[in-house]
Design a binder for these strands. Structure first.
Lengths: 327, 327
DNA sequence: ACAAGCACTGAAAACGTTTTCACAAAACGT
DNA sequence: ACGTTTTGTGAAAACGTTTTCAGTGCTTGT
């Protein structure tokens, strides 16, 4: 029924070995290569990738495991990863964990079964801390979030520095009751919280940090409760773009005026953040670069498994807008 | 080196056939099944999916081909598709075509080589019109956009009706120089344009439609040029959420007041559309349902290849906001 | 008690490629 | 002109599973 390499071989009058070599990069004379090409076209042959992978023991596939593709940060990173992968003739298996360690374990097992060439992984803190030396039997690059210390390549943001920059800016604009609402699941959120706390201490201010699931709804509820409570902050730092959106919603719902009643600052320069009124002060992350660099690190690790572990730290870019009383 | 099914068989003291059956759903006695489970645990065996696919001739994989995952519409649909797929033990191969017919052809070929069980596809108009009866050698469900007429299952929006609803609303609010800026690449954009034109005609108004690439930047430039020109509209209908964002940017850049100088209405209830001031009137699409229904149609088609072609038409929900002078 | 069926198991074939191996012919160095 | 390499080719093995086929031992119905 379906046409295989032996049909092509028969049509071209050569052996299957020659067809395979003509399609790949083996040494084949020009004459035979032309015959094979013609036979491929005539038969409409499509190589069976499962068979190829089984025999060649290389899948040309990478896994990409993130919390939720609907978070625009991961959307953008994923797109960059996919472009780089397809550009290099590789496929991507995308998995959404929803910050759930059980699903992370499930997908890591799937990656083993797929015999992926490598994995790009943004883990929860739980998983990152539980992972030991031999637990990932494939090259792995951690992105956005730290993996187990010292074991794998990674590419992260200078989270503490970025948080501190936001706090410094808020203090300079005259805010003092600066609260921080951070994600509860990632090392990144924790680093942002620590950077916030350190900067607050440096300014002699009392840090007020809370943690929730890093999603818009959870942040909206937490922020709303905070605004109702006895210690209403005059500024709020949010740990990512989704939470920033939640906080903005909560402020609007309470009728708070920004930036006079409340300043807002956060992470991720999502396209809408300069569309609202006032625009929101954010730390822009180099999303495309994170994706392409992650693939680069992974390729190099695959090519050279024993090279020393590398950690790439990128800087965010602060964009000051009206939500913190800036221009 | 790597542990295979024969190692498990040896460890369990049974044949590979029995291991395979114990792991699958074959008939195996309880005693042996327990031995096999123990051996699997002891050896840390991970089945090789490439080998399984090759032998069993079923890949349990579906392709998902969309224009750009960064478009929140496709992001949400993709997430729903992936959830449904993984929930049924299938994998997803995601491809971004950037509205490019050449890349569509490339990825369709890839789907053949992967021997996917089926494909979910949002094609450009070019490709949809070029596709003949035998061109897709796998079950295919078209989403968001029409495929070749009558050949495949599909799930689309009532685009013309939704457009007309927007026009009717704008007319009721007193607007009359209502322009339409639509995507140039999809049947969907064309249907929205036609629905717009028909509604305008019904109201005795002159339709003014333009078409550009369905992206924020292109729409912003086109809208800006339109606002500068001699025939500035007093309302604009946009063909998707990205273009709506572009038009909103252009209006703000020109200092136009919404809704007094200009009304804005479009498609896709993206999270930011009710965050800007004024909120934007949109047609909300049932994104999650589109994704899950697409997978359902695909599963049913795979299970029963010869059943009649089905076309599911979903209705959008109009959400009237300040950008059209609504409450 | 015996034929017929049933439930379970193992040996071996099969899936569609790539790769190894052996070898013939051509090219090369002296 | 003669070994020695190089180049190109085909036959067959190999990749790691699932599935077919042919039992074997039990149960069942009569």
């Amino acid at each position: 029924m379906t046409v295989g390499i032996r049909d092509v071989a028969r049509a071209a009058g050569v052996s299957t070995a020659t067809v395979s070599r003509a399609l790949g990069k083996g040494p084949v004379s020009e004459a035979l290569r032309a015959q094979v090409d013609a036979a491929v076209r005539a038969t409409g042959y499509r190589p069976n990738l499962s068979a190829r992978r089984l025999r060649s023991q290389t899948t040309q596939t990478v896994g990409l495991i993130v919390a939720d593709i609907r978070n625009p940060f991961f959307t953008a990173v994923s797109r960059a990863v996919e472009d780089a992968a397809y550009g290099a003739g590789m496929r991507v298996i995308l998995c959404n964990t929803d910050e759930d360690a059980a699903r992370e374990a499930l997908y890591l097992r799937l990656m083993e079964e797929e015999r992926v060439s490598g994995v790009i992984f943004a883990p929860t803190r739980t998983t990152a801390e539980a992972l030991g030396p031999g637990d990932l039997p494939f090259p792995t690059v951690f992105i956005d979030r730290a993996g187990p210390p010292g074991l794998h390549d990674s590419i992260v943001l200078d989270n503490a520095g970025a948080s501190a920059a936001l706090v410094d800016h808020l203090v300079a604009r005259g805010y003092s009751r600066i609260g921080g609402l951070f994600g509860s699941t990632s090392s990144t959120a924790r680093e942002r919280r620590d950077g916030y706390a350190a900067a607050m201490a440096r300014h002699g201010l009392e840090a007020q940090a809370r943690a929730v699931l890093p999603q818009a709804e959870a942040a909206e509820m937490a922020a709303a409760a905070w605004f109702e409570g006895p210690e209403r902050p005059d500024a709020l730092v949010l740990s990512n773009g989704q939470m920033l959106m939640g906080a903005f919603r909560a402020a609007r719902g309470r009728g708070l005026r920004i930036p006079s009643d409340l300043a807002l600052a956060g992470f991720d320069n999502e396209p809408w953040t300069d569309l609202v009124d006032p625009g929101l002060t954010v730390i822009e992350q180099p999303v495309a670069e994170i994706g392409t660099q992650a693939m680069r690190l992974l390729f190099e690790r695959i090519a050279n498994p024993d090279q020393p572990v590398r950690k790439v730290t990128l800087s965010g870019r602060a964009i000051f807008r009206g939500s913190t009383g800036a221009a």
